[in-house]
Design a protein around this nucleic acid. Structure first.
Ligand code: MN
Ligand code: MN
Ligand code: MN
Ligand code: MN
Lengths: 219, 219
DNA sequence: TAAAATTGTTAGATAAGTCTAAATATTATG
DNA sequence: CATAATATTTAGACTTATCTAACAATTTTA
């Protein structure tokens, strides 16, 4: 009945990979979990026996409903714990991922549902990633990268795509946080770098790659 | 540097056993952890190599300073999480132990210290067990079993010795909780059963064994 | 104090999760 | 389309934590 931490981590990884492409490959999983492909193959056999994935030798795999439910639940727990750490324990958004990697494996439906309630049934974690409800359903997210916003339009920061601590700390440094209003003053034609201001403050420059990794509320 | 969950559980168990008697035996550990003595022997060798215990074949073992520090830290985390679950997440005192068994292994000094602060640097968990501070120091606890209190004396419930869920639920049922004032009206000479009242309410009877397992603030 | 009982250790096995090296299947390319 | 490159699986090994069965040391007791 109960799955090991390792199995949970595989299912979470597989779920994330299947968001891009229904058919997931051995190598993709190995890369995401930073382990060898041979190790992944062994685990795939085990998950297939447990009917958590559909797996055919050399053909890739996909999650069953049961497997998806577990993967989504781990993601739900991870993101609720991250939000808890930021909102209730005053951690910064770049400090919470590693701790949530551990907390996501705590087994108590009651605890996670009370956490959900305590946080007001939030729709997104501190990085803007959506939190599924207790039935594994994600709300509609209508966000677009800042790089797709036209100059002069004011938009509101809703999250980030890149989740690395260095990127989050960079945003802290230049003063961009979720909820901030961003005005694009100009986009340099040569390299697509943006001249923007945050909450009507003084101007800052960001590269195209940064603009691509900031999500704003879309129309 | 980092210890496995299993090693942490052994060190916690050994610490608890050494509270009674400095020299701990293989069988005691096996009984407490509900595993075979042969398994314990293997682990003892490993813990000795890591210098977490002093161990001599057939002679029993004791914790080193390093081993004690880890054992105490796990207990600190366990009890802080239990208090968090009761005070902040509205769990009952009989619901928190199993969840804390998992949470006690989360690795983040920062998190546990903030939890401590958020709870007001508490001295005891929901069952009245003492919580060591971040340096592993326990406050002085001055509690005695209710069975040692003389009739007519009013005393205040501070905790329990027996920690089983059934005992905790029994206390809930007869209306005894930490902080309650207990008046002993009479002690039956034949079987030492107690006729008491809680917070000046109506009388209840408790057996000697119950009286022995309730701790009150001592003089 | 010698035999019996108890406690503790060793030996050999097993399961989970990982690895490297070798073999095989699939996909891409000249 | 034959071969080269890439992806995947298999085989064999290792580590951790557990077990049972057998053996050894210590303690109890008659
Ligand atoms: Mn995260
Ligand atoms: Mn994880
Ligand atoms: Mn407990
Ligand atoms: Mn534990």
């Amino acid at each position: 009945m109960k799955n090991s931490f390792t199995e949970e981590n595989y299912l979470k990884a597989i779920y994330k990979l299947s968001e891009r492409d229904e058919l997931v490959t051995t190598t993709d999983i190995a890369t995401m979990l930073d382990i060898r492909a041979a190790t992944v193959t062994d685990m795939l056999k085990k998950l297939a026996v447990k009917k958590l994935i559909r797996y055919e030798r050399y053909k890739g795999l996909s999650l069953t409903e049961k497997g998806r439910a577990i993967g989504v639940k781990i993601i739900r727990k991870h993101r609720l714990w991250e939000l808890f750490l930021v909102q209730k324990m005053k951690f910064r958004w770049d400090e919470v991922h590693e701790i949530a990697e551990q907390l996501e494996h705590i087994q108590s439906d009651e605890l996670i549902n009370r956490l959900d309630e305590m946080l007001g049934f939030p729709k997104a974690d501190p990085h803007g990633d959506p939190i599924p409800d207790k039935n594994g359903v994600f709300g509609k997210t209508r966000t677009i990268p800042l790089s797709q916003v036209k100059p002069k339009v004011v938009s509101v920061v809703a999250g980030v795509i890149e989740n690395s601590n260095t990127f989050l700390q960079y945003l802290d440094k230049i003063g961009i946080a979720i909820g901030d209003k961003i005005t694009i003053h100009a986009i340099e034609a040569y390299d697509q770098s943006h001249r923007i201001s945050v909450n009507q403050g003084k101007e800052v420059f960001i590269s195209e790659s940064v603009a691509k990794n900031i999500l704003v509320v879309g129309k």
